[in-house]
Computed example of a mutant assay.
Amino acid sequence: MSVNSFISKALRQSLILNIISQSVPSKEDVDSVIELTASKVVDDLKALSMTLYLVEEKEIVFKFVYFSPILWANNASLEQKFEDKKQKLLALRLPLETGLVGEVIATGESNFFCLDEDGPEKMLDLSKNTEFAVTSMLTVALKSDCRIIGAIQVLNKEPASDGSPRAFTRANLMCLEEVGGYTSALLLRMLDSNYKINEEDAARYISNYTDTPLVTDESDLSFDKTLLARVGADIIRTTNVLPYKLTSKNHVAVLMKNPLDITNREAFSLKTSLSIDEVWVASASLMDTLIKRYCH
């Protein structure tokens, strides 16, 4: 009963490539990060509704609102009702400490709600505003380096394939907190010109949104020194592609800061006659350290 992502994988990767290539982020980049985050959250958590809020001038602003097509099930009039609700919310600005979202933004503490654990009373007002009964909800702060810039909230999990209801779990909450953490860092880089994004946060963001595994410690990998000598230090430095093992005779696994850097991937393969089978994302500082260590 799952719905397709509202951002295709190809478009998601295109947006990521655009964002990370910009030295001076634009408003469009901010919008892209928000849309990418929404797509990631909906896909991973199978949420029927998702809202991303930002704090602007001491007010809570609805920056992104999503309702799953499951909620209207081919009913055109009901679909229009949800679209009207979405547009109304996107135009809304709330005082900073309004409601549960305001509380999460003020404290930085996540909120977990499940009907089976908490009872229906807590969600009566919210259910009136959403047009559907809220049975499960997660709300987390968008925070980085002790700065809170907004919140993400998801409502109700998609039903199982047999139609039976499902609820968010504590593990889902941890996943949402992780997404909120590295998304906040990237948004702060765009909203505050004085903010310097942590390299590890940037690498985690790229890894998650390109579906590429992340390496954070060189001890997690074993480097084939014969392969490194075969490729040569000059090629590794000029392409920023660091091979660490052969996966077959002429195929390799590599580390890159940006797995979507097609130009350097093709240059590496052309110069070495080696095809790249696997890519791992590494932060800029880890790549620099490893290249200095293995490329004399």
Rank of each mutant, 00 (worst) to 15 (best):
L188T: 02
S219H: 12
D217V: 14
L176V: 02
H251R: 15
M190S: 02
G150D: 10
L186R: 01
Q153V: 13
F268C: 12
D145A: 11
N194I: 03
D211Y: 03
F168I: 00
A229P: 04
A160V: 08
L214K: 00
P159R: 07
V179P: 00
P259L: 00
M256L: 08
G180E: 04
D192G: 01
V231L: 08
V252L: 05
A171T: 15
S273G: 09
L274R: 10
N172H: 12
Y244W: 04
A167R: 08
L221R: 04
Q153F: 08
S275H: 15
N264R: 10
A160H: 11
P165M: 05
L270V: 09
D162Y: 04
D220V: 06
L186W: 05
K157Q: 03
D277I: 06
I236Q: 06
P165K: 07
L242C: 12
D211P: 00
A185W: 01
I262H: 08
R265E: 10
F223S: 01
L191Q: 05
S269K: 06
V231G: 02
G181I: 05
T226F: 12
E177I: 01
T238W: 12
A203N: 11
S222G: 05
L228D: 04
S275M: 14
L187I: 01
A203S: 15
R147C: 12
L242F: 13
L260S: 00
L155T: 09
L260Q: 02
I236N: 03
R204F: 06
L173D: 00
N250T: 05
T169S: 07
I206G: 09
T263C: 14
I148V: 15
A253C: 05
D211L: 04
D211W: 02
M190Y: 05
E178I: 11
G232C: 01
L246G: 03
R230S: 11
P159E: 10
L228I: 13
Y209F: 15
S207F: 07
I206M: 09
M174R: 14
A202Q: 14
V140S: 02
E177H: 00
Y244D: 01
T272A: 05
T238C: 11
L188F: 02
F223L: 02
P243Q: 13
F268M: 07
K249Y: 13
L176C: 03
C175E: 15
